[in-house]
Amino acid sequence: MSAPAQGFMVVSLLDEAISGLWRARRMTALSILLISFSLFLVGVFFLVAENLRSVTETVREETAVTVFLKADVTEAERAALEKLALESRLVAATRFVTPETARERFLTSWKSLATASATLPRNPFPASLELDLLPDAVGSRAISGFLDNLRAQRCAEDVQFDVEWIRRLRGVVAVVRAGGIGVGLLLALGAAFTIANVVRLTILLHRDEIEILRLVGAPEVLIRGPFVLGAVLQGLLGGLLALGFLWAAFEGLLRYVAATQNVLLGVFVVRFVAPEAMAVLVGGGVLAGLLGGAFGVRRKNLEG
């Protein structure tokens, strides 16, 4: 087939596909809504996964042990504590935080309490030593003994680090992420299945038309092509609509969080899905349309 003929064929296919979708516009609208709902569920999974990832990253960044120091701590005691930490092979770096720095941090984090803080007769924040842990330190068996050792030091007022809580959170995140991949795959398959059934239903409605097209000599590509292309277009529109719904839901949640100052939601609803995930969602709609369309126009379906 020559290039102009191929171009003409593509234009004809597109024309037939769009005309077909428009002729059955109610059915098309319903199909797109069904597809977008399936893809929306996939998108919700992406959104949850993205925000869990964000929480995990935050936790990883913040896996620091804080040793609050007594007011009478000497320079030598502090140096000995730093040496002990660095020699444990669990700590990557140490950071001394003066009472003044601690107060500044508080004022930055809790601006609304700045006025109340200013009225205090003296700085209530103790000096502390922050120990940044190595990436695999939390999972190490040695961490508990190390923390006990820190607590036993004379200059240590208190040691703050809930290793069990972090371990549990990491475990939950790992389970959710692993389970999420399975759920995401199931939802994507569900979307493809929905599209395939929508195409099959469309074919059932057009069976007479297909028979007539065959009898008057329409090429197979012009009989099947518009259905497949129509399914791809439906998948594309469904993907875009799902993305729109997801954005609206996310914005709605953000506003709800802002209005209610819900701390838990505030932690978990932080960012929208990454551009790659958006592309996967829309591309997934197109792919599901292609697969569903190809499945729907099998000879068995076309000939009943």
Partner: peptide, 23 residues
């Protein structure tokens, strides 16, 4: 089977039940 459309396009067929596309 692939040549049947070509055969059908070379002829005009008037069916007893017309077989017009309803839409």
């Amino acid at each position: 089977h692939g040549r049947v459309p070509e055969l059908r396009r070379s002829m005009g067929i008037v069916f007893q039940d017309y077989k017009l596309l309803p839409t």
